[in-house]
Design a protein around this nucleic acid. Structure first.
Lengths: 405, 405
DNA sequence: TAGGTTGACTAAACCGGTTCAGAAGGCAGC
DNA sequence: GCTGCCTTCTGAACCGGTTTAGTCAACCTA
């Protein structure tokens, strides 16, 4: 066999010595060395070879398209045609090529394909959240798991980037684009006047958004109506006799935060109530607790609080209990997220739930179609809906204790 | 300009028509079309070109190494040498090449580099958890954010795979390997007799583990001692006078679950107490609630419960409150995770905390060094430590109500 | 002055795919 | 028999890097 520098090179990077000579191993050191065998499928890979050379076990190489071509007695190009279901290949030849490819256990090299087709076969998701906020937030695990369910069958991968600040976020998108890591990105957690809409255009990244941005955007989107959830929560509380209802909102620079606040106010108005009190905070437990304390300090504290996520609502439950208020007797509370834990609290949490996993699945599917060049429509998912549990009940008839003379 | 099929091809995939002719757009349909400009840096990219052809705006192409070579008046190979800091390039030439590369805004193509060097410049993480379990679990967000902090500066990416079952998990690793997506993977959530140790070897994936597997393994690992946290929790409770202490454990097929259970029992024994009661469950809120109910049904119910995660502990607090037990007066509770929300409950949750983000950072760093071929040592991180809050207090002196005649 | 060495550099192969121009052969039509 | 066309297939270019063999001039040594 001819000595091929490349083959040798890639082999040594793919293999390691059976036993590192002691002299190379520093005391206490350890290398990740292990002998392995690149797995091949059914029949023996005729293109593979084994060879010990200088104590190095050569890894069996994966079959390439050239191996398939040689084994099938045709040219590389024809193999490519056959494998990509393109016309110009006779049925018999096509079958033979497919058979041979299968026998050799051939799998296309995503790397080579990427280089020649200028595609990455991967999608990107950049999450810009303080880890502290992300912990306890049930959104991303479910969302990512939904994305995955659409990606894996399509042979695509998800490149995830988690950054703490919005400055790092831009760098992250830039790196994805500069390195051609992904064929498109999913923009989530839209903000007011979100600079990412322009950024992805500048970077040449194909993108879709979760929700409609508030800036002109050509990007397709997957939409979930938050508002029916908030409306339902507020109307539920009003129906229970509550009149002084407060809203603990997420950051107002987040679009969904704004929308929830807005629909909170609108619903209050449409029932002839004043706009209600809105406290803006940051989605963290600490923020939710602080906001709740502020509300309790008011002369006429609200009899109900609509929180814009479950973590803050749970913290609110804690603050209420600590203040000697009984929920729901003295105070009703609603959350937003439908997180699992809410059902197991005492009192269990009335909340708004959405099918986050489905968002992920639909978003990934949509983006894949856009990348494939299809003409797509925006996707509307079932609106958020209210789950009534124990933390909401009829408004107290007596004035709340703190408002008593 | 010569017509170059490849350039034309890649251009059309990278650009879209300024305005899709109405006839191509189905009613209500919308394409993600947008004009963009692949961003280049400082000086005008002399290799770029603009051109309208048949109504299609050609994107400015990114400078390639060939462009740099031409502009610097040297060969491709020499440019590669200069850019990779390899010997054999005169200082003046090197400087000139670097200058030219910078002026052209040249960025190496990760794709081309991947193909020729047989590396992916990415790490993989496969998470096999039911999304329901993952929601509310503060581990992964923090862990991933730690990984990212080590990866981004190194120009590496994280390929994440979230699957629901262990069967899908194997397929996921297989796909990462088959597609050469990553240079290595981080194995977390080790199980008893974990098949992944053998799997990654078979697949030829470089890997590290979080914690020591219970099977022979050559893989380097990042280790965090769980046990001091559990030991501290149990000793804390014993010091408070508790004698009947139960443990609500995670699945026993998970190694960390086993270790926590074991050190629970050992600590009990070493203080002359019986092994305590251990209920195995699944880390979900529902599981934690169920286990707690079981414990309450006992004739001599425990006066303290050590939960192996915070979600279950929080559910336990709910069950206790629902049963009319006051925590910590009638029952002490400890969690495990140090999740944010625990500090804001009433009573706030005594828990065990670890620096999960640091695990991620160290794990990614270690794996990168292994991939780079360095000889590495296992990494030991600071052990978990107990955070005492309000949910644990002196054991009740009177027999618990349910045990009363 | 011939021969050997060194340093800087070029040319070309190579990674593993995709794509296109064109060759070869078969067949129909005139 | 010639032309034209279609189908099937080959050969080669190409994506954008990395790496090696080899060229060439300058310098050193005997």
């Amino acid at each position: 066999m001819r000595f091929d520098p490349h083959r040798a090179r890639s082999s040594t990077t793919r293999t390691t010595q059976i036993q590192a000579p002691p002299v190379q191993t520093t005391a206490g050191g350890r290398s990740a060395a292990s002998i392995y065998w690149r797995e091949t499928t059914p029949v023996q890979n005729t293109a593979g070879y084994t060879n010990t050379q200088g104590g190095v076990l050569m890894a069996k190489q994966r079959a390439t398209i050239t191996d398939v071509a040689r084994a099938a007695g045709v040219s590389k190009g024809l193999v490519s045609f056959a494998l990509n279901d393109r016309p110009g290949v006779s049925p018999e030849t096509r079958d033979r090529i497919l058979l041979v490819a299968d026998e050799l256990g051939w799998r296309p090299s995503v790397r080579a394909r990427s280089l020649s087709t200028d595609r990455s076969f991967a999608l990107g998701l950049v999450i810009a959240r303080d880890p502290e906020v992300m912990s306890g937030d049930p959104f991303f695990p479910a969302f990512i798991s939904g994305i995955e369910s659409a990606l894996a069958p399509a042979g695509q991968a998800l490149v995830l980037s988690v950054v703490g600040s919005e400055a790092d976020e831009e760098a992250s998108y830039r790196q994805l684009a500069d390195h051609d890591r992904v064929d498109g990105v999913i923009l989530t957690d839209l903000r007011r006047d979100d600079s990412r809409i322009a950024l992805v255009a500048r970077l040449g990244l194909t993108a879709i958004t979760i929700g409609h941005p508030d800036v002109p955007s050509d990007l397709p989107s997957v939409n979930v109506e938050d508002t029916p959830g908030i409306v339902a929560a507020v109307e539920h509380l009003i129906a229970l006799g509550h009149r002084r209802i407060a809203h603990v909102a997420g950051p107002s620079r987040m679009l969904h935060g704004v929308r929830r606040s807005l629909s909170f106010t609108e619903t209050m108005h449409s029932h002839g109530l004043d706009g209600g009190l809105i406290i803006e905070t940051d989605f963290t437990a600490a923020g939710g607790a602080r906001a709740t304390q502020l509300l309790f300090a008011l002369a006429d504290r609200p009899t109900a609080i609509v929180y814009s996520n479950d973590v803050m609502a749970i913290a609110g439950l804690g603050v209420a209990a600590r203040a000697g208020l009984s929920v729901p007797r003295d105070l009703s509370i609603t959350g937003f997220d439908g997180s699992d834990i809410g059902a197991h609290l005492f009192p269990s949490l009335t909340t708004v739930t959405t099918t986050v996993q489905e968002w992920g699945r639909q978003a990934a599917g949509l983006l894949l179609r856009v990348i494939a060049g299809e003409t797509v429509d925006d996707i509307e998912l079932p609106p958020a809906r209210l789950v009534i549990r124990e933390s909401s009940a009829v408004a107290p008839t007596t004035p709340p204790p703190t408002a008593a003379p």
